[in-house]
Design a protein around this nucleic acid. Sequence first.
DNA 1: ATGCCGAGACATTCTCGA
Length: 261
Amino acid sequence: MRLVTWNVNSIRARLGRLLELLAEHRPDVVFLQETKVDDAQFPRLDLEAAGYRAADLSGGRWCGVALLTPTAAGDPTDVCAGLAGEPNPEQARWVEATIGSVRYVSVYVPNGQAVGTEPFADKLVFLAAAARRIAELAASGPLVVAGDFNVAPADLDVWNPEAFVGSTHVTEEERAARAGLLAAGGLVDAYRELHPDEGPEAHTWWDYRAGAYHKRQGLRIDHVLGTPDLAGHLSAAHVDRMFRKGAAPSDHAPVVVDLDA
DNA sequence: ATGCCGAGACATTCTCGA
């Protein structure tokens, strides 16, 4: 079974690359973030033609999340859009669905803009709300929460920790809040479970500006978190940097996780 | 090889991203 999480930075601008990803990986579940699309403009027909169905929460110009599954696998059930207690529900950052016997969540955590700002406070509130929901969900069965967490959990996840002193994504508060997600559900970080010491190859985001990608100036902020029952079946995990190259790439690369059952 | 910012909108400059 293959899971892929990808912040596409506009599903319409990235449609060609997304279809390429679906054809190449044939994932069983895709977690998308920053779809940046109105509900009416969500490319359902293009995805149907590729054999996929979406459970999406679309918020218009900003944000937007979705879960894609093969049409042949049947409809996702109990689709639940939004997160109880999140500070700005209109931002479209959380969607859940059940496929088979597993609950899946695609999440796009707020970036927080700058330390000390209201958006930064909102980011921590969002993460606290996510921890409460994860505790509920993990108590009732297998769970995978994947997406753009906008937190680099450790210095190994940052291309140059010295360059990030005082920045968002690396503060102790954010790291503690992100650790709280794992603690809330006993979740395992799939990529780190298999590659505990990987640095640059583990990174998932590079700024479009100033040639950050070719300078390897990345962060590992896109994660796949799963309950221990699923973590026990982990067989592979990698970042597919092909999708950060070539024509019209996203600024994020997809994270691909394989389970042996 | 990866190649020096991209996307969307009350657009023709602005906001936001991380």
